[in-house]
Design a protein around this nucleic acid. Structure first.
Length: 435
DNA sequence: ATAGGGTTAG
């Protein structure tokens, strides 16, 4: 019964049934029950319940069962508790390949790519035989860290051990090469595949875009269409960004059509990408048309329309939209402000600049270096070099970066204070220049 | 019977 709920994706019902089982007291859970229940806790990110059940497995002696331990590893990793997972892993007497794979993918998903590679190397050192899941867990970490050498080692393992039969394994190889800036090698793997799915095509298309080759990305789009593979929302988003960077309006409109036919256009991320594409093609009216149909409960489409207004020389509209956004109680984020602040720098109105300064203090966004830099630019373009310098001085010394220095120096320069600009330039840590 | 496994915007 519990298994049926797991297979049908009903983790909450799994837990309910487990509680009923405990309350009735007629049956006690065993080493087959616990993995299902622990998995349900992980899926729902119910850490405290997971810890309680971990305690129960300990009391009943099932915590030495490898299946139970592996499900605990996965549960802790799903809840972001990598230290707890590591403690379970370290205490394990017997580790299966699943234990190692869970640690590798768990570390990577929790933002610890280095640890993921460390576990993989450790696994190889102790002579554990890798499988398909090992490969698809370790390759994203290689790509993220651009560790091409290790990526090639894994590629060698795939050939040597014959792990390349699954499409997912080849897909992750394509992605790894593309992320390591080896788009030609990615293409070699791609061309050698005798079976490809929508993820394969999307990964290769995205690989070209990542490497600044939007034209080849769009070329591949034709081939994909020709082979009868239907794009999903990820594919459409990648292709829209290619159209945006090339200002290919007609191709972008065609993709908009694909999105509508594929029922993808109500996906917020797709809507956001459409708004962005139309704006970058300088058709912000079309961006507004898409924006008017979005749910407006999410931050992303607002950010896209704000930056679209700036791109199309509409700073006042951007400011109005931001006010509307606050009225609708949508939470702005760092990206919202990075899109908005240039609007104030363009209109160069000191009063309005002071108003937004107040908002940045109240909201706490001023502690972000990029936001503070945006405000320096607003003040210097509005003619208040004093205020600009005060903001600049407010940034801790070691947090100052090349952008904040350039902004304040440009401020002095544009007001004809050449000497002050040069003096500031000389105060700047010269190592920035070479970064 | 039970555990792990690919691509995602601003």
């Amino acid at each position: 019964m519990i298994r049926m709920y797991v297979y049908n994706g009903l983790p909450y019902d799994v837990l309910q049934l487990f509680v009923e089982m405990l309350v009735s007291g007629r049956h006690s859970p065993d080493n087959f029950t616990y993995p299902f229940v622990i998995k349900a806790c992980g899926e729902l990110s119910l850490l405290s319940l997971g810890v309680t059940i971990h305690g129960r497995t300990f009391m009943s002696g099932f915590d030495s069962n490898t299946f139970v331990q592996n499900s605990l590893l996965a549960m802790y990793m799903n809840c972001g508790e990598k230290e707890a997972a590591r403690r379970v892993f370290d205490a394990m007497q017997e580790r299966s390949v699943v234990s190692w794979n869970t640690m590798i993918s768990g570390y990577f998903r929790n933002g610890c790519a280095e640890e993921a590679l460390m576990v993989f190397r450790w696994m190889m050192d102790v002579g554990v035989e890798p499988d398909c899941a090992t490969v698809v867990s370790v390759l994203p970490a290689c790509g993220y860290l651009m560790d091409l050498d290790l990526g090639r080692v894994v590629c060698g393992l795939v050939e040597e051990k014959g792990l390349g039969n699954k499409i997912a394994v080849r897909n992750s190889l394509v992605d790894m090469y593309a992320k390591c800036s080896r788009v030609e090698e990615a293409r070699v793997v791609f061309d050698k595949m005798d079976e490809r799915n929508v993820v394969t095509w999307t990964t290769m298309i995205n690989g070209y875009i990542l490497n600044g080759d939007a034209r080849n990305a769009l070329m591949l789009c034709r081939l994909m269409h020709f082979e009868g593979v239907r794009p999903n929302s990820v594919t459409v988003i990648s292709l829209l960004s290619a159209c945006a960077s090339l200002h290919f309006l007609s191709h972008g409109r065609c993709l908009h059509g694909w999105a509508i036919r594929g029922n993808l256009e109500s996906d917020v991320i797709v809507e956001t990408a459409l708004i962005d594409m139309y704006a970058k093609c300088n058709y912000v009216d079309l961006s507004f048309r898409v924006f008017s149909k979005t749910s407006k409960k999410r931050t992303a489409p607002w950010n896209a329309i704000l930056s679209g207004c700036i791109h199309n020389g509409l700073p006042r509209e951007a400011i109005e939209l931001f006010k509307e956004m606050l009225m609708e109680a949508i939470d702005p984020d760092g990206a919202t402000l990075n899109s908005l602040l240039p609007a104030y720098a363009i209109i160069a109105d000191l009063q309005q600049g002071t108003n937004i300064h107040g908002y940045l203090i109240k909201s706490g966004f001023l502690s972000r270096i990029d936001v503070a830099t945006g405000l320096i630019d607003i003040y210097s373009k509005s003619g208040s070099l004093d205020s600009a310098h005060k903001i600049f001085n407010g940034i801790p010394k070691k947090a100052k970066d090349i952008v904040s220095w350039s902004t304040i120096i440009a401020g002095y320069g544009m007001h004809g204070h050449g000497k002050a600009a040069v003096s500031l330039f000389n105060q700047m840590d010269i190592s920035y220049v070479f970064l």
